[in-house]
Nucleic acid binder design. Structure first.
Lengths: 231, 231
DNA sequence: ATGTGGGTCATAAAACATTCACAAAGCGGT
DNA sequence: ACCGCTTTGTGAATGTTTTATGACCCACAT
């Protein structure tokens, strides 16, 4: 089991470096984003276990980043530690209101940082890197999926689709919702395209035999579900 | 398990000899560099487990050496103990900010030195000298890599790349992450350059036959992995 | 100068996404 | 049970994106 993934969002290169190196030394995988835009983009692709977020950022403010993360179900519970300069303490409080889990007033010692990080991660242990449903196992770190121990080979879109479904098992999603959650933003895609990817996903999932794990709900959409056909 | 490798960076020959001699008597492998230039050069080739670094050095200052070491992912976590003369204590503190792990005020007793060294090494135990993955073996001391006993000849960049991958086997990394961790900082390199080095690495790794140990994950990146192609 | 290694580019080769047309299946009403 | 309408499944064609590869140039060290 390796340590948690962190994302440091900080525009001051010196501070970013200092924090990153020290956290890396503690064994964390550290990623860095220089502004809110980059941070949101990163989170879209790969969700870290904890975000260290500066309050003052060029462009989208830290508060705004925080708010947007809270808005999406996928990142709503993502722990956030905010940095604020002395004198912005009131802001820090507002940050907490907005959903930050803790905050540090700059300048802070590395030990204080470590303590906060450890505390938060203890409280909210790193999200499962491994999703399971029935005999399906998805390892999001190595990016591998297997069923009954058989390794499956999924294309990028099928992977994202399955990932989303495994995060919400047994729940029915319309094609629109699936497009919204499992596709890159800003792509205008025909609704029926979802059908095709569902089909390919089914194909791959079932290639070793076994019941179909995707349930079609007529006029509604699809769900990841283990339902035998009626006998 | 042999004792740790230390590097003493000290321009005063008398002090250098004193420190080296005593540490050797404790069973450490001690190397000596007389200035920052030499120290950086040494570290480039052979990474010690701990650096004892004088603050005042001819040419590149100790602080600068420290900073440069922190800049490179390969040495970012390398423990450093700094020496500073009395009166430079403020500097020593700054040294800590820069990333030194501990410091000693000159003159210091050998016992104080031993205590610090032991403490630091306990906190950050010497890195693995030998990395293994499947039949791949990387000896980080002699800087040699072999597969199935066959010695491979890797360029510096391929070596760092492989080293990073072997430290995180089976994990998928984006090109950006690979650039961040296996390249010198401050070099602005095209993302696609990673492809080229991955290819060169593959070429060398596979020259004796055997499965490809690098898995391409479309739209994500690469991973060191042992996955047979589907039959 | 000569060799080695790193970076970049152009192009080839894969892998993949999307759409469409048609078949198949479900569903409600009769 | 039958019909017609709607929705979903499927195969194939097509265009796009991403990766692999080979060649070239440059910098640096021998």
């Amino acid at each position: 089991m390796h340590k948690a993934d962190l994302l440091v969002v900080e525009d001051d290169p010196a501070l970013a470096r200092l924090v990153s190196y020290n956290l890396e030394k503690q064994g964390y995988m550290v990623r860095h984003a220089a502004d809110g835009e980059a941070a949101l983009e990163y989170v879209r692709q790969r969700r870290p276990d904890l975000i260290l977020l500066d309050w003052m950022l060029p462009g989208i403010s830290g508060l705004e980043v925080c708010r947007r993360l809270r808005e999406q179900a996928r990142t709503a519970a993502l722990p956030i530690i905010m940095f604020s300069a002395r004198g912005e303490e009131a802001d820090a409080i507002r940050g907490l209101d907005t959903g930050a889990d803790d905050y540090l007033v700059k300048p802070f010692s590395m030990d204080a940082l470590f303590a906060r990080v450890k505390a938060i991660l203890r409280r909210a242990p790193p999200a499962d890197k491994t999703l399971r449903f029935d005999t399906l196992v998805m390892d999001r770190v190595s990016h591998k999926v297997e069923r009954d121990g058989r390794l499956l080979s999924l294309g990028p879109t099928e992977y994202r689709l399955l990932e989303f479904l495994m995060l919400h098992p047994a729940q029915v999603f319309s094609r629109e919702e699936l497009l919204k959650h499992a596709w890159e933003r800003s792509s205008f895609v025909e609704l029926r395209t979802v059908d095709v990817h569902i089909r390919r996903l089914r194909q791959t999932l079932n290639e070793g035999g076994g019941v179909d794990l995707i349930r079609t709900v007529r006029a509604r959409g699809y769900a990841l579900d283990k339902v035998q056909d009626q006998d």
